[in-house]
Simulated assay, not measured.
Amino acid sequence: MTTLGICIPTYKRPDFLIRCVLSALEAAGGRPIRIFIADDSMDDTNDAAYAKLAQWSNQIVIHRNARNLGIDDNIQQAVDLCDCDYAWIVGEDDSFMSDSVRRVHDALQGATHAFVFANYAYVGDDDNRRLGQALDVPDGEMPGFEFVSKSLWAAGFIGACIVDRKRWDATSTAPYKGSYYTHVGRICELLAGTGDVLPARIIAEPCVANRVEGTDTFTWKRDSYGVFFGFCAMCNAVTRQCPSLSGASMQAAKVMENRYGWLTLRLAMRLRSERGYDVEQYRRYLSRHTENGLKRFAFYVISVSPPWAFQPLVSAYRRMRRGAA
């Protein structure tokens, strides 16, 4: 039997962690999955959660890191703990859709794919409001070059990523260190293979709920633009590491930038309203990457303005988007 492990990097959010693990167990439908938790908390914040989870399953492996690794390295740690055939990475604040783990476990039986993309749904801060889904693609295989060039952005959400555990060990973390996207770079290496670019297996029906609203949604928000530009750095590294994917990875960077509008004033105002953008980020990133002087000045003004000044505009924009949907 092909085995599946759920790999969860965690940090001081016990309520989310409990919900994530219980949703995985419920969605497994009795399939023999294991759960691997890499705890970066460095204290006893999650102890009560672990005691509660132990009542539900004896297939949960908990590893307390000897030092704080940070989110990117802790993702790698969570996969390193896994001794199953496939490792499914997921964030502690995400939850599994009904029956999704069973569906994936069944689909993996006899599978030979190096990378499986599990589609996901966007949900509101109450988890019940479904706002859409990541990819609108059919179930089945997608050529690896096509996946990287058009859809690599979607693999930035770790809950979408299921990797062949043994082949994962043949990839390297070093080229992607500090990018926030080490796992995506390693996935590109998986798809690059040793010869022809390998296909990605797509599971089209959403498997994980990705919460995209709420002030505590993104653990990396204090360095929002570092995350954005980190994706570009990761794509540049893929170009060097995987010549067969060089064109695809450069296209992936363009798709990512256009999708999220990194260099738009609208995004800067939204991030500032959520305290996800400040003058330090302006100096580190936008002042150097904005050629237009007037726009550069606008980015600066936004970075030093009080967050509350933009909150009404952001709320109005979200209401308009919901009405349009």
Score class of each variant (00 low, 15 high):
259 R>F: 09
322 R>L: 15
313 L>D: 02
200 A>E: 09
237 A>E: 13
202 I>D: 03
224 S>E: 05
232 C>K: 11
254 K>S: 09
235 C>Q: 04
260 Y>K: 06
191 L>Q: 03
231 F>K: 01
237 A>N: 11
208 V>L: 11
271 L>T: 02
230 G>S: 13
223 D>S: 06
260 Y>C: 10
273 S>E: 01
191 L>S: 04
257 E>C: 04
266 R>C: 03
271 L>P: 00
224 S>V: 08
277 Y>D: 02
305 S>M: 10
238 V>Q: 06
257 E>G: 03
199 P>F: 10
281 Q>K: 05
285 Y>E: 07
256 M>D: 02
270 R>D: 05
232 C>M: 10
197 V>W: 02
244 S>K: 12
285 Y>G: 13
293 G>Q: 15
254 K>A: 13
223 D>G: 05
294 L>Y: 01
186 R>W: 05
201 R>S: 11
269 M>H: 06
186 R>K: 06
184 V>T: 05
212 V>M: 12
227 V>D: 02
250 M>F: 09
313 L>S: 02
313 L>M: 07
267 L>S: 01
242 C>T: 10
187 I>T: 11
208 V>W: 04
318 R>K: 09
270 R>I: 08
212 V>D: 04
278 D>V: 02
208 V>E: 09
247 G>T: 15
196 D>H: 09
246 S>A: 15
318 R>M: 10
189 E>L: 14
215 T>Q: 11
256 M>F: 10
227 V>K: 02
245 L>M: 12
309 A>E: 12
245 L>E: 08
296 R>Y: 01
217 T>N: 04
188 C>M: 02
250 M>E: 12
281 Q>D: 09
197 V>P: 00
271 L>R: 00
254 K>Y: 03
295 K>D: 07
278 D>C: 08
242 C>D: 06
254 K>C: 07
183 H>C: 04
311 Q>N: 05
319 R>E: 11
303 S>R: 00
284 R>Y: 13
291 E>A: 15
240 R>Q: 11
201 R>G: 08
297 F>Q: 14
321 R>E: 04
231 F>Y: 11
282 Y>M: 08
312 P>F: 03
284 R>L: 15
300 Y>I: 00
266 R>E: 04
315 S>I: 13
190 L>R: 01
211 R>C: 15
191 L>W: 02
318 R>G: 03
238 V>Y: 11
211 R>S: 14
232 C>T: 14
185 G>K: 10
223 D>K: 08
241 Q>N: 05
289 H>A: 02
240 R>F: 15
192 A>Y: 00
193 G>R: 08
